[in-house]
Computed example of a mutant assay.
Amino acid sequence: MEPLYTAEALSTGDGRSGHVRSSDDTISVNLAPPQEMGGSGQGSNPEQLFAAGYAACFHSALQMVAKADHKKLGDSAVGARVSIGKEGEGFGLSVVLEVVVPDLPVEESRELAEKAHQVCPYSRATRGNIDVELEVTDQ
Rank of each mutant, 00 (worst) to 15 (best):
G88C: 02
V82S: 03
K71F: 12
P46F: 11
S123D: 11
V82Y: 00
A80Y: 09
N129T: 11
A66W: 02
E108I: 10
Q35H: 10
N30K: 04
S60R: 01
V20N: 09
K115L: 02
S60H: 04
L93V: 14
N30S: 05
R110K: 09
V78Q: 13
R127W: 06
D14V: 09
H70Y: 04
P102T: 15
E114W: 07
D131R: 01
M37R: 13
D25M: 01
V96C: 14
G43V: 05
E2H: 13
A61P: 06
L93A: 14
G85S: 04
V95H: 10
K71Q: 15
V132K: 02
G92A: 08
A68F: 01
S76Y: 05
A56G: 00
H19L: 07
F50W: 12
I130E: 02
D103N: 12
S23W: 00
D131V: 00
H19D: 06
H19N: 07
A32P: 10
V82I: 04
V136L: 07
S44H: 09
A77E: 12
G74E: 10
A7F: 01
D131K: 00
S22Y: 00
D75T: 12
H70S: 06
F91V: 06
H59P: 00
V65H: 06
E133P: 00
I84M: 04
L49M: 13
Q35D: 11
V100E: 10
I27H: 09
P34K: 13
P34T: 14
K86C: 01
V136Q: 05
T137E: 11
I84C: 01
P121S: 15
P33I: 12
G88H: 01
S94H: 02
Q35N: 13
P102G: 14
